[in-house]
Design a protein around this nucleic acid. Structure first.
Lengths: 166, 166
DNA sequence: GTCCATGCAAACCTTTTGCACTATA
DNA sequence: TATAGTGCAAAAGGTTTGCATGGAC
């Protein structure tokens, strides 16, 4: 929610990436990148489009999608799918470089946290399964503090006698 | 890949769930549930439809989706999205009740494994963030043993000088 | 001047829904 | 017989693509 002090250095990195790839640096690409780099939120394409319009930029959705693809390829931006039916994008320049997500099932809020245990998990699957980890995703779904305090609960709607799954 | 010895007990549980909810037990619902319970794989809707046809059942996709929704609600089946553009379904009666997934980026194979560390992670977010965990998802993406042995590597395609993300 | 990007609209793909018909209980 | 399910086709919703125009280098 807080805005980063300056997106400039990251815009420069993106420009460098485009040049490395022999691709032109266009106004639209700079604008989309700036919106993503200036926000600490997990933005949807609709939100990005709205912020661009608020800045006075009318940029087509196709261009936004195409630019996000470049940003993800450059590894400056991460794509997330929290099961809402659309994707969200977050730049990788936050204070917590590698982090996981808590997703509130009631209000949709996303909280970042760190889980150092994952390193041990990745080391173990390499030994036990011969699997070479490249990246991971850990999301914990539940209720954020505020929704719990507002009295929200998650109803159980499965079988009356749940199967044992521990 | 191996077939479970008998899906009967689980079909009975599903029947009980339907009766609890006052819903009729139809031939189509039994057939879809049986296909899911009989497989140890992570099935897509297309795969389920194909297996139904192979059994001689011609059941519309709409009915398959509607039945999968009931199976997920009953907590007998889990829905997964491994980022392929469609969902996969897995029954919850495997030998490893709670497990995570290794997804091979080359061949798409899914391997199940256990990560007991997650319990500690969930306990910690409850203390540190006041977040009440309900469920989680942990997926590790990388290369399976066979694809590594076949010489597959994952090319780095980001910036030549990657940003530090520890 | 040569590529490549952009914008628009159409296409795509999975999933959902409306509706006439049929089956369950 | 009443209620709910099924199948088909159409709709929905996010994302991708084709193509003519316009911009970067």
């Amino acid at each position: 929610m807080t805005e980063a002090p300056s997106a400039r250095p990251f815009l420069n990195l993106f420009g460098r990436y485009l040049r490395e790839q022999g691709l032109p640096v266009t106004h639209q690409r700079e604008a989309v990148a700036q919106v993503v780099f200036e926000s600490e939120a997990h933005l949807s394409v609709d939100e990005i489009e709205r912020r661009l319009r608020d800045r006075g930029d009318r940029i087509g959705k196709a261009t936004i999608y195409r630019t996000l693809d470049l940003l993800v390829r450059s590894r400056l931006v991460e794509e997330h799918d929290f099961g809402e039916g659309f994707k969200r994008y977050e730049h990788r320049l936050s204070r917590q470089p590698v982090h996981e997500h808590l997703v509130c099932l009631e209000c949709g809020k996303v909280i970042e946290f760190q889980a150092r245990e994952i390193a041990a998990v990745e080391a173990r699957v390499q030994v036990m399964h011969g699997f070479l980890p490249a990246r991971h995703r850990l999301e914990v779904y539940g209720l954020c503090r505020e929704c719990q305090e507002a009295g929200v609960t998650l109803p159980y709607q499965g079988l009356t006698c749940p199967i044992d799954t521990v």
